[in-house]
């Protein structure tokens, strides 16, 4: 997902009886559906895991602007350009809400940027693929934002208050993202044969990376079990992937496009689709930095950060000067 394979420091999820009183009280509050707020006591591992998860999520929103930003200056109409600009601006906002949520756990914004720019922190694998045609912008909104929604809707109920509240704001904006993407796909799919071929090509390239967004099966993962016990993860990766496939296949059918999976078949018995396995070797390579655009994405981020330094410093200097002036006139008035 936007935060893939988040590790905890847990070796084994412990039962209530095995916990010290403080931790037990904490777990009981979570079990009762109460929210944990900043400054309240929490296990160190809960705090560290959340920082990893939220900052990874924030980095994904920020880096996620880059593939789409590639098409702002080349959108086919002024209206599409305005819509795409608004969408990409939303993603910047999502990053900011999430960075703020992470900061309440005791990490600074600059530390998080540093982790992103040094390559230490991860962001979603999906943003390391290139946007080759305008149809890719449609496919991203439809599939990538669609997959993000699957994951973010349940996170609105997560146990950490600031994260849950950021998710509420984000979810309100996401459905615009998905619909504008589907709208682009609809126009292309119902257009000329060339346009329809563009839409099909985009679906062919984005389908598997979108399924990989949910991460490999984690039914046997202790990290996933611990995150679920803490209610900072609500569904298994396979569950969400299944839901995504079942939701998306009829949409592709409506568009008259073919999902590029020969194994895809409706399974009456389970009431869902059977589908093929994504190429997990590709996934791990992308996560390890070897996707088609990893280097380009990080370079763009670093360049934006470094090129903006003079401007950030200028604003700081101006603020300091103004503050000093106010101070001086206050003293003079006394």
């Amino acid at each position: 997902m936007y935060a893939q394979m988040v590790k905890t420091d847990t070796k084994r999820v412990r039962s209530l009886d095995e916990m010290e009183p403080q931790e037990r009280a904490f777990q009981e509050r979570i079990d009762a559906g109460q929210k944990i707020e900043p400054k309240e006591w929490m296990p160190e591992d809960y705090r560290k895991t959340l920082i990893r998860q939220i900052s990874q999520h924030a980095h994904s929103e920020i880096v996620g602007q880059l593939p789409e930003g590639n098409w702002i200056s080349r959108a086919p109409t002024l209206e599409r350009k305005a819509i795409l600009l608004a969408k990409v601006q939303d993603e910047a906002g999502h990053g900011l809400y999430l960075y703020c949520a992470a900061e309440t756990l005791g990490i600074s914004r600059d530390q998080m940027y540093e982790q992103l720019h040094s390559g230490k922190a991860k962001y979603s694998s999906i943003f390391n693929y290139p946007t080759l045609s305008w149809a890719d912008i449609g496919a991203i909104g439809w599939l990538v934002d669609g997959a993000a929604i699957m994951n973010q809707v349940p996170l609105q109920r997560c146990s950490y208050g600031p994260y849950a509240r950021a998710m509420v704001r984000i979810c309100k904006e996401e459905s615009f993202h998905q619909r504008q993407g589907f709208d682009i796909m609809t126009v292309l799919a119902k257009g000329t044969p060339e346009q329809k071929a563009m839409a099909q090509d985009a679906l062919d390239r984005w389908w598997w990376p979108s399924l990989m967004m949910f991460g490999p099966s984690d039914d046997a993962s202790v990290h996933s079990a611990q995150s679920m016990a803490w209610k900072i993860k609500q569904n298994s990766n396979d569950e969400l992937r299944q839901k995504f496939v079942d939701q998306t296949v009829p949409q592709a059918k409506y568009l008259g496009l073919t999902v590029p999976d020969p194994a895809l078949k409706w399974n009456e018995e389970k009431g869902g689709h059977d589908f093929g396995e994504p190429d997990w070797n590709e996934f791990f390579a992308v996560i390890a930095g070897e996707g088609p655009c990893n280097r380009e994405r990080l370079e763009a981020r670093r360049k934006a950060w470094n090129d903006g330094a003079w401007f950030r410093d200028g604003l700081t200097a101006h603020a300091e000067k103004q503050a000093a002036r106010r101070q001086a006139s206050r003293i003079a008035a006394e």
Binding site: L96, C100, L315, A319, Q322
Partner: peptide, 11 residues
């Protein structure tokens, strides 16, 4: 509604 970073109140 949330928080943000800025150099001064106007910003």
């Amino acid at each position: 509604v949330g928080s943000l970073h800025a150099p001064d109140a106007e910003m």
